[in-house]
Amino acid sequence: MAEVRAEMVANVWKVVVNEGDQVSDGDTLVILESMKMEIPVISEDDGVVAQLKVAEGDVIQEGDLIAVIE
């Protein structure tokens, strides 16, 4: 199980995957936006998106849980 957490304060611009999706190492899970920059959040494991904790438009803080990959 791998937790994916936010590295900075940001807005969730786009959610690319759904819970239950199969993902591979390097796949984009969500795209954040902070300070006019798009920041893709990448899965670092192969697995299934067990939990997805953010929705488009959310404001998230550094350290917030974005997704869990199993």
Binding site: M8, V9, M35, I39
Partner: peptide
């Protein structure tokens, strides 16, 4: 800029 000096990713606060 409010960004980390290595990767230049945003660092508000």
């Amino acid at each position: 800029y409010a960004e980390d000096p290595k990767r230049f990713f945003p660092g508000p606060g």
